[in-house]
């Protein structure tokens, strides 16, 4: 019997953690109890910035984190899931998987740390939630918006001031008008943490969409120590995770949208028209690409090519994508009532 230690930091209600649990349950069941997981959820063992360094050092065997956000020097290329590329979460799951399988630079990012990447799952679509509607980038001009990482570049490009702040502080600050709006708010987290109650508008900000992924990985040495039979079980279940995600994500968005509606929020939802989205694309697309090239430059000259390859893969999967963004789900649900 092999015991593997798991550490995560994302809330237990999130879809990423739900799937970690599903994965571990399935592996335990299908291995007939030959593999057991000792589980530490919600940062109980390690805080977000320590998850990947700890996994690399073998402090745990299996972990889910966002290394590209918290350890950007070690994982710059994984930052390829940038805002204003797509709204389709399922397209991103498959596109990231294919990109990883075909790109040696991206593989090296993990293998050089002694980490075996298993899957990457998008956080649900973001938007800008606040006291004013965001239809065009200029609407952010002069506004104080809680934003970090790539979305902060977008806010700056629109003339706004990005303010880095914790999620909880930001909800409080928006509620009391110390901030005009907050971004980096996955739809389900926003609803579950009461953001609709403190804002007048929720805008998709020109289909800002998917802007980050959580990444689950095994420590390579821990994996190598497993028997062939054990490895087979792990790989079998891991291969099913993306499909499972796609099955669950729409239901999860519907549930959040229902909660949004039930709480009787007065929030007005702004969805971009095709023309508006195209204009955002014009401004943000080249900006994100050039920023990505800059980030990637510490490890490779091919940043632009990787970015383009990822976008191309996303476009390949978009037509068959079934994901409906959270804000759009809410609008449909509201119209139905």
């Amino acid at each position: 019997e092999t015991k593997l230690v798991y550490a995560g930091y994302i809330s237990e209600r999130s879809i990423a953690t739900t799937l970690d649990t599903w994965f571990m349950d399935q592996v335990e069941a299908r291995s007939g109890g030959d593999i057991k997981f000792e589980r530490y959820y919600g940062g109980a063992l390690m805080k977000a910035p320590d998850i990947y360094p700890g996994l690399a050092q073998g402090a745990v065997d299996f972990a889910t984190g966002t290394p590209q956000a918290y350890n950007p020097k070690d994982y710059p290329l994984s930052n390829v899931v940038l805002p204003w590329i797509t709204e389709k979460a399922d397209a991103v799951v498959y596109a990231f998987r294919d990109l990883y399988e075909g790109n040696a630079d991206l593989q090296k990012e993990f293998s050089s740390q002694g980490v075996k990447m298993m899957w990457a799952l998008p956080f649900p679509d973001g938007g800008i939630w606040g006291s004013f509607p965001v239809r065009m980038p200029e609407d952010m001009n002069g506004k104080r918006i809680r934003a970090v990482a790539a979305i902060a570049w977008g806010v700056e490009a629109g003339g706004g001031s990005p303010v880095p702040m914790s999620f909880a502080d930001a909800v409080e600050a928006v509620n009391r008008n110390a901030l005009d709006a907050m971004a980096n708010t996955p739809f389900d987290s926003a609803v579950n943490n009461g953001v609709p109650k403190v804002v007048a508008y929720a805008s998709d900000a020109g289909r800002l969409g998917i802007n980050s992924v959580s990444i689950a990985s095994l420590n390579q040495a821990s994996y190598d120590r497993l028997s062939d039979a054990q490895k087979a079980v792990i790989n079998e279940v891991a291969a099913e995770v993306p499909g499972r995600y796609v099955e669950l994500i729409n239901a999860s968005m519907s549930k959040a949208a229902e909660r949004f509606l039930e709480e009787g929020a007065e929030t007005e939802v702004i969805l971009a028209t095709d023309e508006e989205a195209a204009k955002w694309q014009e401004v943000m697309g080249p900006l994100m690409r050039s920023k990505y090239i800059e980030m990637a430059s510490s490890v490779t000259e091919n940043g632009g090519a990787i970015y383009d390859q990822f976008v191309e893969l996303v476009r390949k999967y978009e037509p068959e994508a079934v994901y409906t963004p959270g804000l759009a789900t809410y609008v449909k649900l509201k119209a139905g009532h």
Binding site: M46, D50, P53, G54, G58, A59, S166
Partner: peptide, 23 residues
Amino acid sequence: TRPWMAVEFLVSTFPYSASANLA
């Protein structure tokens, strides 16, 4: 309770992670 590698990592990062917080 932990293997040595885990002890070393947790001990070396904990003091910072437990205090480096704007809140």
